[in-house]
Amino acid sequence: MGQNETAHGVDDVGGDDAEFDPIGTLTLIGIYFAILVLSWVYIYYIEFLGRDLVVVG
């Protein structure tokens, strides 16, 4: 078996890996999600729709 992806090498930690819950990742990505939504609302509704010469046709 040559490829590392399917090989179970010496640093294979074993069964307790299945318990890993990436709670820190979920927190970080939740913050990112909130930033994305707020920035989008600002740039679309305030910045874009608030400008002169909105194209209507």
């Binding site: 002169d52 010469l53 909105v54 194209v55 209507v56 046709g57």
Partner: peptide, 11 residues
């Protein structure tokens, strides 16, 4: 493109 103009202004 069709736009609605508002007050006098130079762009």
């Amino acid at each position: 493109l069709t736009v609605e103009t508002a007050e006098p202004q130079e762009y």
